[in-house]
Design a protein around this nucleic acid. Structure first.
Lengths: 277, 277
DNA sequence: AATATAGTTTCGCATTCCGAAAGGAGTCCA
DNA sequence: TGGACTCCTTTCGGAATGCGAAACTATATT
């Protein structure tokens, strides 16, 4: 008996349909830099046998996800967009956002929200909260809060042009909510600089005593920040560092996903209307 | 020996990787109406064995294209968008459009173009033409033509609000280019009504003698028509009816694809700049 | 024309996937 | 509370499907 052992046993689990994974590997090697690839290029990039690659490519062409281009090359079919468009294109953003918010919640985070910027204020458009949450706050969807003092506000403000930022910050008097609340322009600007460096905003009891929040911005197709997503944890859940390490990557990733999906999801944006019960 | 014959031999060609096709069937059953499906629902819709469905779903979850949702349900992962975003998101629209234009050309159609509306005029932003084309016209990229008399113009105007339409139509004097050119507002409005009914505009030597054109609109995320794509054939290539039957579906489909892709492709739009040689 | 490179097909083997059926897990209803 | 139901998950044997090496063909390169 011959052992044609698999070189890389990356497929961490058994009973995985390998042909399917390989098929996606083929699609995934395409990018904007080289939109058309020959079979051998595909095979090399996807680390697949030429014969196998040929068969997979043929199949994908049949399905319409890959198209034959001139000169024995292939390019991605626009049908790859249909998968997303059929499902997400007609879905309203709140519906898409809810599972993402849920994925942010867990033993540490007890609430997750999305708010959009409306003038100098934020409007909560979607929020999830643990049933037995010990968080004092309980912002309802539709509630408005000032932008200058919240993590969500910072996440958005940090990426706005200076002029607009100042306009928003100076639109209303800024009052301290907690001892931590940054109120002077230099204090806030220093925070925003840090947001730009990290890609997310951290609030350690800036707005409500005992509550920490991490937020990341959601951009429109023109790369303007128009909303942000946040996750909040009670002060006693863990150390600040643990909170950041645990939550920041998830929040940033969620924001990126929403940035992407908001592009295809019409230009309708979120709606603060409550559906259902 | 047992014959476990395939019930439906839909796989039209041999050496097709069936698992791959089945995997896509799984993803394709998701739509906005029911964003979360149970395994049995997936199996039923995709017409797959429960066991097979389970294995495929497991694989897709591993790959990130499917996500487990609450209550033994699955929903589409936003990763399905990555396929398109990685490839098309960073690509400029002209690059994406060119293969689409090429696909419109053939024995009948000898030229294909995209133009955007700029005030009362159209600007050609991309154009392909058969080398030995017998078409008299040869619009260069960047050329400007009046909107009122061309198929591309009609395709766009038909979907603009009446007020804007009239503003554009009345911006400049309308002169007959050929005996067919519609010049009065009633004539043009009647054409536009037909465009709205059919979904595409037909020009039978309206602008240039001997040239027929079919065009369909490209919409922005707010559903405003901002560009259109067209295919042109010489008068003698075939009958008008043959031309329409052959070309209209392809042009409409191309326009829909561009509408979709223009959503994710930033808000940069087309550029009339000529790249490369 | 000859060589090299890349694409396509063939082919035999065994791996991988399939499907039936059994074993759980959860739910509904009495 | 129990039983019946549905649906999810796993096991298992078998075979067919897909794999990869290699042969063959087409295309480019010198």
């Amino acid at each position: 008996m011959m052992f044609s052992m698999k070189v890389s046993d990356t497929d961490s689990s058994k009973s995985m349909v390998m042909s399917l994974a390989k098929g996606f590997r083929v699609l995934e090697v395409f990018d904007a830099r080289e939109p058309e690839l020959t079979l051998s290029q595909i095979a090399a990039r996807a680390e697949l046998d030429p014969g196998t690659t040929y068969r997979l490519a043929k199949t994908l062409v049949m399905l319409g996800y890959l198209l034959p281009a001139e000169g024995k090359r292939y390019r991605l079919g626009l049908k790859v967009l249909d998968l997303g468009f059929n499902a997400f294109g007609q879905m309203d953003l709140n519906t898409i956002a809810r599972p993402i918010l849920r994925s942010l919640m867990g033993p540490i985070n007890e609430a997750a929200s999305i708010a959009v910027l409306d003038g100098p204020e934020l409007v909560y458009v979607e929020r999830l909260q643990m049933p037995l949450g010990r968080l004092g706050i309980s912002q309802r969807v539709g509630a408005r809060v000032p932008a200058f003092c919240t993590a969500i506000g910072h996440a958005i403000l940090a990426y706005l042009p200076l002029e607009e930022r100042l306009q928003i910050l100076n639109a209303k008097p800024r009052t301290k909510m907690t001892p931590n609340t940054p109120v002077t322009i230099p204090e806030i600007e220093s925070r925003l600089q840090k947001v730009r460096e990290l890609g997310y905003a951290v609030s350690d009891q800036d707005t409500v005593i005992g509550v920490r929040v991490i937020a990341a911005p959601i951009f429109d197709p023109d790369d303007r920040p128009w909303a942000a997503i946040s996750a909040a944890a009670p002060w006693m859940a863990c150390s600040l560092q643990e909170f950041v390490e645990h939550t920041a990557p998830a929040v940033v990733s969620a924001a990126k996903q929403l940035t992407k999906v908001s592009r295809i999801s019409g230009s309708t944006g979120f709606t603060p209307a409550r559906r259902g019960a």
